[in-house]
Nucleic acid binder design. Sequence first.
DNA 1: GTCTATACTGTGATAGAC
DNA 2: GTCTATCACAGTATAGAC
Lengths: 204, 204
Amino acid sequence: MKTRDRILHTSLALFNEFGEPNVTTLQIADEMDISPGNLYYHFKNKTEILVELFSWFEQQMNDLLDIDDFSASVEDQWLFLHLVFENIAQYRFLYQDMVNLFGRHEKIGLRFKRILEKKRKATILICKTLEAQGVLTATDKEIFALAENIVLTATYWISYAKVMHGSQGDSELNQGVFQVMSLVAPYLRAEEREQLQVMGEAYL
Amino acid sequence: MKTRDRILHTSLALFNEFGEPNVTTLQIADEMDISPGNLYYHFKNKTEILVELFSWFEQQMNDLLDIDDFSASVEDQWLFLHLVFENIAQYRFLYQDMVNLFGRHEKIGLRFKRILEKKRKATILICKTLEAQGVLTATDKEIFALAENIVLTATYWISYAKVMHGSQGDSELNQGVFQVMSLVAPYLRAEEREQLQVMGEAYL
DNA sequence: GTCTATACTGTGATAGAC
DNA sequence: GTCTATCACAGTATAGAC
């Protein structure tokens, strides 16, 4: 792997572990056994590393959300949600100190907001599709509030699990998926509701 | 007001506005038109200011949660939630960069975790009380998942509103209360559910 | 209690040799 | 491309006069 890519991967790992503001360029260089000067040969500054990592995250998430084939099966929704959670976990440093991070990098904050907005719209679309298919029963108002809660829970679950249960790895991802699904559960047809219950027990 | 108290109040305001890591002791002193030396006469270091502010937050929240009179009325729950949200808003800097903050101050992180745990237990108790009174219908498992979602939403609503809608003040607090109530809504008796709908329209 | 001046430290970033 | 050396600056904290 080229040095430039190694810098990015090492930065991502350290940012996720300690939080971006707590990781210095010297630490990144040390971890890779290269000199700080070498790091600054490949990147103008620390912000450039951050922006590149954000672009990775952004593209990956956009690719996921651009799928327009919304299946009505509970399993498929579970899988889709799991992919979303994996993306979040992979770039969790973006989610854990948002005010600090976006306060110092407004453009990144704006792009992040656009992602969240896209997630919210996709969630509404999925709910309305499920409703049209009779799998879900809810008023438009209920769907709007539900979508907001789903996005919020997906966004902050990993932070919450870290503070609350001290989890570090990806062990708690399945519980996150379950928590989101349990937001939808009361609006589901009995059949899908039971199916969800079974899946929940299998995964937790 | 004594200088010591003015330091605390000024710090709180600045921490909430810019995030604790982005506020320097020099800024705090400047804002108050005192010298940095004077600030360090009253506090050994920046951490001591943080710890004192956290203690304020902690006591206020504990006072709220120690109420053991759980009314079944939707209005009372709305009011109680509003008080919780006001406490969160008042010390919102604690909620906005948790990983960074608690990474550098583990003891504070532990105490914060205890507060969240207490909130979760109180939420479960309220739900079970409502269930016993027939206002709410849900299995134990549903209540556990619901409580976790309620605490998570309450914890992160203000951060989410800031990122998503750019809100700064307390204007979005009512919507936060509404979002939490909408988590409970599907489990409520029709009567309370309608009442909630009416209240939601009045407040939003 | 409050001020001014200053020391110390860590971090981001650059210059120039190899 | 990579290294060593070094700068510049910001932020924390202290010393000592008033």
